[in-house]
């Protein structure tokens, strides 16, 4: 049963990843659609951050430490464009504030 669940989920996940790549392999994308697709990456990342900061009841689980950690990471990412620096800034801020409070 467990093996069946893993295989079914594997097939489903692969199908979702491959679906449009195969379905639209010969499709001419209208300019409006190409413009819309430019927004997918920033909006998915934004929504993922929020989903990680909320519980299943829709309540924010972030305290000041998390909130300021995310702000620090965003600022450092914007000015350095370096994910390691952003990670260090975000985690550093988070740990320091949590230690103070």
């Amino acid at each position: 049963m467990i093996a069946a669940a893993i295989i079914l989920t594997g097939i489903g996940t692969y199908a979702m990843r491959a679906f449009f790549i195969f379905a639209l392999a010969r499709y001419t994308f209208p300019p409006l659609m190409l413009r819309a697709l430019e927004y997918v990456a920033p909006t998915v990342m934004a929504a993922l951050v929020i989903s990680m900061m909320t519980n299943t009841r829709g309540e924010l689980t972030a305290s000041w430490a998390e909130a300021l950690g995310l702000v620090a990471a965003a600022v450092v990412a914007k000015f350095t464009g370096n994910h390691i620096f952003a990670l260090l800034a975000g985690m550093g801020t988070f740990w320091v504030i949590r230690w103070i409070i």
Partner: peptide, 25 residues
């Protein structure tokens, strides 16, 4: 989430993309 917000900033290389990200949040 720290990494994903960093990736969000990297993917928002235009003001309108950043606005889209804020709206999505």
């Amino acid at each position: 989430p720290v990494l994903f917000i960093s990736l969000m900033m990297a993917a928002s290389n235009r003001k309108d993309k950043l606005a889209a990200a804020a709206l999505a949040m």
